[in-house]
Design a protein around this nucleic acid. Structure first.
Lengths: 186, 186
DNA sequence: CGTGGTGATGTCACTTGATGACATCACCCT
DNA sequence: AGGGTGATGTCATCAAGTGACATCACCACG
């Protein structure tokens, strides 16, 4: 393949996160990111549609993992149980690299534009889960509610896991949060 | 007061919405908005921090109305009931001008950046409601859940009201949606 | 009456994000 | 050997924002 250094996209991702952490999102220019990755700004925009997206490029993978898991859950499983399976998949996909997750989370919570982007990614994820539940035969209204509840759990659990001082398993925190929600809505 | 035409902010708001409807959000430049309002682009940015915010300037008012209503609800009211009072206030604040709401909704749903902004406004609103519930003595976890549920109802009901063909009262749709959520989570 | 302050606006210059058009050039395949 | 390909560079340009400074009707105060 290329005559250039491999993994340009990955290099851009790393350079961007480093710089966002070092000096903040707004204070970092695309030209700087590209330079640190040994590329030009124009090339940055060939890999990422905008400066924010560089932090969210993995979200389609996460969506796929979760929907696959949800659709593949035992046929007899209730909607909420199927959502729980999807959350396990999310934990598996996200729980491996806590340090990366922590830095990324720090950057996002420090910037309004990034929070906006995160919110819309979560909304997309919720819609995808609701769609998956629909394929399992769940009525649309119920599907949306169950999906929203699942996303709420994902958000709360991920935040607890990533900001908490202790080294716990994300999957464990997720399951705890599901149980907590269950008891609250009962 | 001024030697200039009054209500510059309102003129900018109207001009922006008109243009966003006519040719879309992205295809409209700030210079065009300002020109239609008889002003310059620089002045636009003195009234609104960015091109999106011109559609969301009323959101702090809405937040205030809802939180005031929530805090002023009968002391004995349950968290969900207090949220219902806040939703009534929202209906009163939003339900008057359906035509405006409809045009605005059309523009927002047609553009990703605007959806992002809308989502973060809703998140802020949810946090404000949770804070209000906290002032009523509701535990934080419960407050957040009730607030999120309220926002979910607001979104669903507003969408139904604004896109539906029939001329119904927003407050009525809200109350129906609350009941529906109640029966679903029971 | 005039004089200076005030506040909303205009003007200008500049940085940065984002995009289109075109050039480049190592690698691969035939 | 030579042509195609794809990732990258280069250049030009537009639009979003922002800072610095000018303008000028109105107002308060002496």
């Amino acid at each position: 393949m290329g005559r250039w250094e491999p993994n340009a996209k990955g290099r851009l991702r790393e350079a961007a996160l480093d710089l966002y952490v070092e000096r903040g999102f707004e204070q970092t220019t695309v030209a700087e990111i590209a330079a640190r990755a040994g590329l030009t700004a124009r090339t940055f925009f060939r890999h990422f549609p905008d400066k924010r997206e560089v932090l969210f490029a993995g979200s389609t993978d996460l969506e796929r993992h979760m929907v696959d898991a949800l659709v593949g859950a035992p046929e007899a499983a209730s909607p909420m149980t199927a959502v729980g399976v999807a959350l396990d998949a999310a934990a598996a996909a996200l729980g491996g690299n806590r340090d990366f997750a922590r830095r990324r989370h720090l950057v996002i919570t420090a910037n309004g534009e990034l929070q906006e982007r995160e919110l819309i990614k979560m909304t997309r994820l919720s819609a995808a889960l609701a769609g998956g539940l629909g394929r399992r035969g769940v009525a649309e209204a119920d599907a949306r509610l169950a999906a929203e509840a699942g996303i709420a759990v994902l958000r709360v659990a991920f935040e607890r896991w990533v900001t908490g001082p202790e080294e716990r398993d994300l999957a464990e925190v997720m399951r705890e949060s599901v149980d907590r929600l269950r008891s609250l809505t009962r």
